[in-house]
């Protein structure tokens, strides 16, 4: 499931290698120039072709505080109504008999009120959810105009100025990670905080996670914390049978998680 060449399939992989070649040949030319702001990277340049981002989530460490969901809404100015989330936390309660109960009141931002009879609980845990930034993204496949795409650094993004708002991508996402932004009238979703990661900062949800339940980085880089995470954990991804090849890896996720 995980390998160092976990680049998106077919065309993107080819493009990736092409662009790496070009980047090597024309080293001086850079596509991006970020001003020398407070967070600017050392050399002031960022080359997307050198990166391939992913995230790890350790279910055993998540305490369900919902700070990630809260920080995400603040960082990305997401509507605070409880129907729009780029990331949210689910609570799973598996009773000794009967159906698994899942809830996510306001995405977990306001905490999880006790609702179940403690004596009947077999297993219970929290699972943070977000866009899986699939290597084989069904949302990108169905976009009729090319308004959503996988960037060269492996992040699935939405072009707010080009999206026609047909919502096919929302239907095609198996994870419920996309929503229709009520103001921009376009599809919207997690960007891995693209504006932060390209400047060397972690995504907001990772920044505020108090227990390091979320690990952000690159599998391809030996020094990345994510490399260690995928090295020492048994990992699963969500709905692997759909062959979306998610890049959000879960450690310790129960079989009930979907």
């Amino acid at each position: 499931m995980i390998d160092n060449n976990n680049k998106p399939v077919n065309r993107r992989g080819f493009l990736g290698s092409c662009s790496r070649f070009i980047a090597a040949g024309l080293g001086a030319i850079s596509v991006f120039k970020f001003g020398g702001s407070l967070w600017g990277q050392e050399n002031g340049q960022y080359n997307p072709a050198e990166h391939n981002y992913a995230m790890g989530i350790d279910v055993h460490k998540c305490i369900g505080c919902g700070r990630c969901a809260d920080a995400c809404k603040r960082e990305n100015d997401v509507t605070r109504e409880p129907y729009y989330f780029r990331t949210w936390v689910e609570r799973y309660v598996i009773p000794s008999e009967g159906e698994t109960v899942v809830d996510s009141p306001n995405g977990g931002i306001d905490g999880f009120p006790e609702t179940v009879d403690k004596n009947d609980v077999l297993r219970t845990f929290f699972v943070p959810k977000l866009c899986n930034h699939c290597s084989n993204p069904p949302c990108v496949q169905v976009c009729p105009v090319g308004a959503t795409f996988a960037s060269r650094d492996g992040v699935v993004l939405v072009d707010e100025k080009y999206c026609v708002g047909c919502r096919y991508c929302i239907q095609a996402c198996p994870y419920g990670a996309r929503y229709f932004h009520p103001e921009s009238k376009t599809a919207d979703k997690c960007t891995f905080c693209y504006h932060r990661i390209t400047k060397g900062l972690p995504p907001a949800c990772v920044e505020v996670c108090p227990t390091h339940a979320r690990v952000f980085g690159e599998i391809g880089q030996l020094s990345s914390p994510l490399r260690r995470f995928v090295r020492f954990n048994d990992l699963t991804v969500l709905k692997p049978w759909l062959n979306t090849k998610p890049k959000v890896y879960y450690a310790g996720a129960d079989g009930e998680v979907r």
Binding site: V145, V164, C166
Partner: peptide, 24 residues
Amino acid sequence: HLGHPERSFEMFLTPHVQSAMAMF
């Protein structure tokens, strides 16, 4: 039904060949 009907012509300009809808 589109969020941005004024952008619908993009389906002709840059149709995404992998998308069933783009072929519409």
